[in-house]
Simulated scan of single mutants.
Amino acid sequence: MPLNPKLNKLLETDFEKIYALPLDQQREWYARSWDDCKESIVEVGSVNDLIVKTSVRDTLIRVYHPKGNGPHPAFIWIHGGGFVFGNIEVYDSVCRRIVNNANCTVISIEYGLSPEYKFPLPVEECYETVKWVSDHAEKLNILADKISIGGDSVGGTLSAVISQLSRDKGELKIIYQVIINAMLDLLGETKPKSRVENAEGYRITTKGIEWFVRQYLNELSEANNPLASPLLAENFAELPAACIITSEYDPLRDEGELYAQRLAAAGVNVYLKRYNGVIHGFFNMQHTLEEARDALALVCTKLREAFYED
Rank of each mutant, 00 (worst) to 15 (best):
E39D: 14
K38R: 14
P5S: 13
K17W: 00
N69F: 10
L11F: 08
I76E: 03
E12G: 03
S33P: 00
W34D: 04
P22H: 08
L21C: 00
R62M: 10
K9G: 00
R57T: 12
D49S: 15
S55E: 14
I76V: 15
K17T: 11
R32H: 07
D49M: 12
A31K: 12
R27D: 05
W29H: 07
D58E: 13
D58P: 09
Q26R: 14
K6Q: 14
L23Q: 04
I76C: 09
Q25V: 10
H65F: 01
K9W: 01
K67L: 06
Q26D: 01
D49L: 09
K9I: 04
I18D: 00
T59Y: 08
S33E: 02
P22A: 04
V47I: 15
H72M: 11
V52E: 09
E12L: 05
L10C: 01
T59D: 09
R62N: 07
E28S: 12
E16Y: 00
N8M: 10
F15K: 02
L21A: 00
C37L: 03
S40D: 08
K17A: 15
W34E: 06
P22K: 07
Q26L: 04
D58N: 15
A20G: 01
P66Y: 03
R27K: 12
L11T: 02
K38Q: 11
T59I: 09
L10P: 01
H72Y: 12
R57D: 08
L23P: 01
Y19K: 13
V42E: 12
T54V: 07
E28M: 09
P66F: 03
I18R: 01
G45M: 04
R57L: 10
S55C: 14
T54C: 13
F75S: 06
A20F: 01
R62F: 06
I61H: 03
W34H: 14
W29K: 05
L10Y: 05
F75Y: 14
R32T: 01
R27V: 08
